[in-house]
């Protein structure tokens, strides 16, 4: 009797499934608990007091939450718009021309915010903006928008560049052949074909901005809490399921945007 030897495969190791399940439990159980307790009727984040939408009501009527949500949204939308525009130009500049010296260096420069410790960026921005505040007296949301735009650029850049690199340069040549001047080529062919990448980049940038705590905490002026920094502030005091409710809303938003991002990134012509 001959028995074929099983080839080595990591998924056949003993305990593989158990470890995978444990990892998922570790990852999602806390989130599931958080979401569950956002529907808690009682005022504890640990003791179940029956199902209720009470804390959603509380959160939505809280002026501080409303203000923070509005600020979060304005900053995220502005930062996403600025970062996506800059990232699109950067992606065009780095892919729609021949190889040039320093290309790799430029890639690294653009993606540096992914590598630099966030706290370093935060401190740098704090010091930098502080001197501008002193010089100009301006203390609006502009600083936060600029700061968010800066660290969102690499996140917007990556999907746009991926899309551009996968794009057939022949389309642009064909458009030029059909009497489209360089601007028309960009407007009528490059940009429409690039759109899924641009939308994906914008969404990723929006989500990254929406979630940011560290840089916002350092850069914001008084009364400029965003949702995450507001929550952080709340946690220092009494913790009620209101925080769970806000977290869940934020989570829902992120999940929707990331799903859209995923679908857009996968979209092919």
């Amino acid at each position: 009797m001959t028995e074929r030897r099983k080839r080595f495969a990591i998924e056949t190791l003993p305990g593989f499934t158990a470890i995978a399940i444990a990892a998922f439990v570790m990852l999602y159980l806390p989130i599931v608990t958080l979401v569950a307790y956002s529907f808690n009727g009682g005022s504890s984040v640990a003791v179940w007091g029956g199902f209720s939408l009470h804390w959603y009501e509380v959160a939505s009527q809280n002026a501080a939450v409303q203000g923070a949500a509005a600020r979060s949204f304005i900053i995220a939308a502005s930062a996403a718009a600025i970062a996506t525009t800059a990232a699109t130009m950067a992606a065009l500049g780095t892919t729609r021309r021949g190889k040039f010296t320093g290309q790799t260096f430029i890639y690294l420069m653009i993606n540096q915010p992914l590598m630099v410790p966030e706290i370093v960026t935060a401190v740098a921005l704090l010091i930098f903006f502080a001197s501008i505040k002193v010089a100009t007296g301006y203390s609006g949301l502009g600083y936060l928008i600029l700061a968010h735009s800066a660290f969102c650029i690499p996140f917007a850049y990556l999907p746009i560049r991926a899309r551009l690199e996968g794009m057939d340069g022949a389309m642009e040549i064909a458009a030029a052949d059909l009497y489209a001047n360089p601007w028309q080529v960009f407007r009528r062919v490059t940009l429409p074909l690039l759109m899924p990448g641009v939308a994906a980049g914008a969404m990723l940038a929006f989500v990254i901005s929406l979630d940011d705590v560290v840089i916002t905490e350092f850069v914001k002026s008084a009364g400029q809490d965003t949702l995450p920094t507001y929550m952080l502030g709340q946690l220092r005091r009494a913790v009620t399921p209101e925080v769970n409710a806000i977290s869940t809303a934020l989570l829902g938003m992120t999940v929707i945007l990331l799903t859209a991002f995923f679908l857009l990134s996968k979209k092919r012509d």
Partner: peptide
């Protein structure tokens, strides 16, 4: 002058 490309290069959108 217009060109018919080997890959056709039709605009997919």
């Amino acid at each position: 002058v217009n060109t018919v490309f080997q890959s056709y290069a039709l605009f997919p959108h």
